[in-house]
C-alpha cells in the first residue's frame, strides 16, 4: 500500500513548526529508515501516517485514504504503530490478551486471529510467556510484546519508533528478524532510529530529516555515505562506512560483507 505525502506542514499548538514542507512517496513493500537529530521531526512525521496527528497543511494519503478524513481507529487497519516506549501501549493482564486485542478489534475471524497471534508470538519469541502479565516482564521483553501486538494486526504498513533503544544484542537481532519476516510478506516497514549501524544492515532506503525538512532521501548506501550532509542533522555514518572512508576505499561500504569484499579485492 502506497504512502503519498504532499507538501506536509505541521505546527504544534506551542507554535513549533515541526514539519516544514515534506513531500514523499513510499511504495508498497519498501523498508525505510528515518534518521536525524533529536527534534528533527521524525516522530511528528510518522504520527501523521496513522492519523495521530493531522496536517496543518498539505496531505497524507495511505492508499486511497486521506488521513485528514479518517479516524485513528479506522487507519489502524492499514497502519500499525509500535511506540518508542512500550509502557505507553500495553494494558492487558496477560501477553496473550494483549496480542489478541488488535486483531480482535479489526474484526478478523477467529481462525485468522489465532493464526496471526501464533505467528507474532513466534517471531518475537514470546510463545512461552503468553500467560505472563506484561508488567512482570523486563522492559526488553515488554518491547517484544508491544511489537507482537502490532504485528498481529496484519496491517500492510508497520511503523517502529526507535525499536532498538536500550535493547541488548540478542533483542536487536530479534527485531531485525521480525523486520526481515515482514519484508518477506511484502509489508511496508518504516523505522525511526538513531542506531545507524542497525539502519545500514536492515534497510534499503534511508530518509534523513533535519529541522522539519528532508535532508537526504535515497538508497541506504547513497545516503549513509554523505558524511558532511548527515553531520548537519547529527548523524554519523555507520562504523564500517567511516572505516572505509578513513582507509580511502573507493566505494562506499555500509556493512561487513561489502567491507570484506573490498578489502579482499584490494589485497588480491
Amino acid at each position: 500500500m502506497k504512502i503519498e505525502i504532499k507538501d506536509l506542514h505541521f505546527t504544534y499548538p506551542t507554535g513549533l513548526e515541526a514539519l516544514q514542507g515534506i513531500s514523499l512517496t513510499i511504495n508498497s513493500g519498501e523498508q525505510v529508515a528515518i534518521v536525524g537529530q533529536n527534534g528533527a521531526g521524525k516522530t511528528t512525521l510518522v504520527r501523521h501516517f496513522n492519523g495521530l496527528l493531522k496536517p496543518t497543511s498539505g496531505s497524507v494519503m495511505i492508499g486511497d485514504w486521506d488521513t485528514a478524513k479518517y479516524s485513528v481507529a479506522k487507519l489502524a487497519s492499514r497502519v500499525g504503530y509500535v511506540f518508542q516506549n512500550p509502557d505507553e501501549q500495553l494494558f492487558s493482564r496477560d501477553v496473550l490478551t494483549e496480542v489478541e486485542f488488535g486483531p480482535k478489534n479489526l474484526g478478523y475471524s477467529k481462525e485468522k486471529i489465532d493464526e496471526l497471534v501464533k505467528q507474532a508470538l513466534a517471531w518475537t519469541e514470546l510463545t512461552d510467556k503468553t500467560e505472563t502479565n506484561p508488567y512482570d516482564l523486563s522492559p526488553t521483553w515488554r518491547k517484544m510484546v508491544a511489537l507482537a501486538s502490532i504485528i498481529a494486526m496484519d496491517t500492510p504498513i508497520v511503523i517502529f519508533d526507535e525499536p532498538t533503544t536500550g535493547q541488548d544484542f540478542a533483542n536487536v537481532s530479534r527485531i531485525a528478524h521480525v523486520i526481515a519476516e515482514l519484508k518477506k510478506q511484502g509489508k511496508t516497514v518504516i523505522t525511526i532510529t538513531h542506531d545507524i549501524d542497525f539502519c545500514a544492515e536492515n534497510f534499503e532506503r534511508v530518509i534523513a530529516l533535519s529541522n522539519g525538512k528532508i535532508l537526504l532521501d535515497g538508497k541506504a548506501r547513497e545516503v549513509l555515505g554523505q558524511e558532511e550532509i548527515l553531520a548537519q542533522t547529527y548523524v554519523d555514518p555507520p562504523q564500517l562506512t567511516r572505516l572505509g572512508k578513513l582507509l580511502n576505499l573507493k566505494e562506499t561500504v555500509i556493512n561487513q560483507e561489502e567491507f570484506l569484499n573490498v578489502i579482499a579485492r584490494n589485497v588480491g
Binding site: 541488548d168 536487536v172 562504523q239 564500517l240 570484506l260 578489502i263 579482499a264
Partner: peptide
C-alpha cells in the same frame, strides 16, 4: 556469551579468519 561487540571488532574477527 552473546554480547554485542563493535562492528570494528566483528569485521576484524572475520577478516582474521580470511587472513585479512
Amino acid at each position: 556469551n552473546g554480547f554485542g561487540v563493535s562492528r570494528y571488532t566483528s569485521v576484524a574477527r572475520e577478516a582474521k579468519k580470511q587472513g585479512l
